[in-house]
């Protein structure tokens, strides 16, 4: 009987081993697509693979990565944020005006906007509203506020922000270092801490969490507040790089951030997200969008189409991997 038990235990664990292998393969897919894009760039223009080249090419990757992380927190709770792009634009406008001219007021506005994000989380949970509708509405609110703050392009980034973002560390280009840092910090706090488990669990099986006595209101508020925090960081980083602002500066970030999360191995429902994957996804999109197209002599009008093509290819590969394991 015992021998039989051991044997029955073995076979399904082998099946589970293959499920784990499939997950590993799927987990490597974002990194693999990044490597492919890098190889293509290296082949088209070998000089781009250098300290200076990377600093230049990945410049805009930092705000995209931060916006992607913001989106990832929302997706981890089975919601979607359609306002992150205009929110980044709004933060950018505040950064280029208030934060430089009257830092205290600027900080208060930015903290207040994070508070609004937290309130949105509470509203969505308490009234059981679809987040897509709420954040779609909010996207117009942020856009309007941004135009109020900065009616025409202009403003200037605070000097300390410019100093941070033009930092040149030895050997490793700053954007790569920043991306590693962002990925690592978020990974540790969401994937390794005990409360991170609760946050992800709220996306996996909310009823189970409620039964275990956890507050779903709190998890939703925390997830949205974190999205607000990273949205603010994204907007500030963006202005630190572009040095001046425009009310429409962040508009493309909504779809970029969603694409980054999905490209990085996340799923729309079920609390399955990966912070490191999301950062890699953001880097891939940033690289594939402009540098690769420029080197291929394709006009920048095709940027969005190129991003779409990459997304479709990677998702198709993911489906193929999952299907083969069945």
């Amino acid at each position: 009987m015992t021998a039989a038990t051991v044997e029955t235990g073995l076979k399904p664990s082998a099946a589970r081993g293959s499920a784990a292998r499939a997950r590993l393969l799927r987990g490597l897919l974002p990194a693999l697509s990044l490597v492919l894009v890098l190889l293509a760039i290296a082949w088209l223009n070998p000089r781009a693979i250098s300290y200076f080249g990377f600093s230049l090419m990945l410049n805009l990757a930092i705000p995209i990565a931060l916006a992607t992380i913001a989106q990832m927190f929302v997706i981890a709770g089975n919601e979607l944020d359609l306002s992150i792009g205009t929110f980044v634009g709004f933060v950018g406008c505040v950064t280029a005006t208030w934060l430089k001219d009257a830092p205290l007021i600027g900080i208060a506005i930015l903290l207040g906007s994070i508070g609004i994000y937290a309130l949105l989380g509470a509203l969505i949970h308490l009234r059981n509203l679809p987040s897509i509708v709420v954040t779609l509405g909010m996207s117009f609110v942020w856009q309007g506020l941004a135009i109020l703050v900065l009616p025409k392009p202009g403003g200037k980034a605070p000097d300390w922000l410019l100093a941070i973002l033009s930092f040149k560390p030895p050997f490793v280009p700053f954007p790569i270092m920043a991306a590693l840092l962002i990925g690592l910090i978020v990974h540790l706090s969401l994937m390794r801490t005990s409360y991170g488990v609760i946050l992800r669990g709220s996306g996996g099986n909310a009823a189970a969490l409620r039964r275990a006595g956890w507050s779903l209101l709190k998890t939703k508020v925390v997830l949205f507040a974190l999205a607000g925090v990273f949205g603010v960081l994204s907007g500030m980083a963006l202005i630190g790089i572009t040095t001046s602002a425009d009310a429409n500066i962040g508009n493309g970030y909504t779809l970029l951030s969603i694409a980054g999360v999905i490209l990085g191995g996340g799923e729309f429902v079920g609390g399955r997200v990966s912070p490191i994957g999301a950062v890699i996804g953001a880097l891939t999109l940033a690289l594939a969008a402009s540098p690769l197209l420029t080197f291929m002599h394709i006009p920048p009008d095709w940027q969005v189409a190129a991003n779409g093509a990459i997304l479709i290819i990677v998702l198709a590969a993911r489906v193929l991997i999952s299907r083969r394991e069945r």
Partner: peptide, 22 residues
């Protein structure tokens, strides 16, 4: 109806039921 989170591992699911596992 099962009350496990399918996206978490077995240890993490245990943590959900024990506030002191922190």
């Amino acid at each position: 109806e099962l009350s496990l989170c399918p996206n978490l591992d077995v240890a993490e699911n245990t943590r959900i039921n024990h506030a002191s596992l922190a």
